[in-house]
Amino acid sequence: MNLSIDSIVKRYRRATALDSVSLELEEGLYGLLGPNGSGKTTLLRIVADVLRPTSGEVRLDGVDKDRLGGQYREVIGYLPQEFGLYKEFTVIDFMLYIAALKGIDRRSAVERSHMLLEQVGLEGMEKKSCGKLSGGMKRRLGIAQALLNDPKLLILDEPTAGLDPEERMRFRKLLSDISGQKIVLLSTHIVSDIEMIAGELILIENGRLIGSGTPEELLEELRGQVWTAKVTEEEYGAFESALLNTNASAHPSARIVNVTRKGSGIEARILAEEQPLPGARPDEPGLEDLYLHCFKSKYEGRRGD
């Protein structure tokens, strides 16, 4: 199966949300990374056929989704960023209601609903009112309903919002298990959600595609630019002050990724093209480093935060 996103543009009156975004997706899990407001949700809504682009096409196996119509929507599973529930429904009633909207016969719907509720950790909650679910439970129910029709194209917008660490681990395992037979497009700004399961990353900022590739390929480009330095509090304070003084900084391209107190000193993780401090040693880059490197414009003026 192939999904082509071809020169997608979305304009509003005073802003361009997407600017000529093109992608070719095969079966597998794709992590769509970008800061809030970068255009991720707009792109997913267009792919999910709930928002029309200003120009460009989305094609499934070479056929424009608009020509496919209902056939296209039948193969989609979609979890929007803002997921609404009917509070008076029970969990199982809601699943069966969504199944009916998707044209799934009742016997299959009942069987699949119970299986999916177990997979997302909501077994035993079938008779619980949706209005009494916690935020994490509502998100898990949203994931379950997106999988009801066993979609070939699964679109998930910030799916782990509100989930605790154990729930997120369960979710990542579920996605890893199913992504071999589907195209899974997952939008997030939380790199840990996709660090271990995404086969390819798609980087988007200000409505533009700024990069894509496997995590290994993208991290290789950052090799030699991640440093760890063990310093005294005084040395760190002087370095941080130099970074904040944008007019006179000796390290204009350096950014502090993380700071950990070690005994009486400080261990700082720093992004820099050259050794930022005496004694700083090169370190292996990670996705958090990549995120800050690629989306540095969002963090200008907030160095050291």
Rank of each mutant, 00 (worst) to 15 (best):
Y72F: 10
Y72E: 07
E74M: 14
V75E: 07
V75D: 02
I76N: 01
G77I: 00
G77R: 00
Y78T: 04
Y78S: 01
Y78E: 04
L79T: 03
E82L: 09
Y86E: 10
K87A: 15
F89C: 09
F89V: 01
F89R: 05
V91K: 11
I92V: 10
D93L: 13
F94G: 05
M95L: 14
Y97D: 03
A99S: 12
A99W: 00
A100D: 12
L101M: 06
D105R: 13
D105W: 10
D105Y: 08
R106T: 11
S108F: 09
S108A: 15
A109W: 00
A109Y: 01
E111Y: 04
E111A: 15
R112L: 00
R112D: 05
S113N: 01
M115D: 15
M115Q: 15
L116N: 13
L116C: 11
L116A: 07
Q119Y: 03
Q119T: 10
L122M: 14
E123M: 13
G124T: 07
M125I: 07
E126F: 07
E126W: 02
E126R: 02
K127V: 03
K128L: 03
K128S: 10
S129R: 15
C130Q: 10
G131K: 13
K132H: 14
K132F: 07
K132E: 13
L133P: 09
S134M: 09
G135N: 09
G136S: 11
G136K: 04
G136Y: 06
G136T: 05
M137L: 12
R139Y: 10
R140I: 06
G142F: 12
G142K: 09
A144Y: 09
Q145K: 14
Q145H: 10
Q145D: 09
A146Q: 02
A146C: 09
L147C: 11
N149T: 05
N149Y: 03
D150N: 14
D150E: 11
P151M: 14
K152P: 10
L153P: 00
L153I: 13
I155L: 14
E158A: 06
E158Q: 06
E158L: 08
E158R: 02
P159R: 07
T160I: 02
A161R: 12
A161D: 08
A161T: 15
A161S: 14
A161V: 13
G162M: 04
D164A: 06
D164H: 08
D164E: 11
D164W: 06
D164N: 08
D164C: 07
P165M: 04
P165F: 08
E166G: 04
R168I: 02
R168T: 02
M169S: 14
R170T: 04
R170H: 06
F171V: 06
R172K: 15
K173M: 10
L174M: 09
S176P: 12
S176R: 13
D177E: 15
D177F: 02
S179T: 12
S179G: 13
Q181F: 05
K182W: 04
I183L: 10
I183T: 08
V184T: 10
V184Y: 12
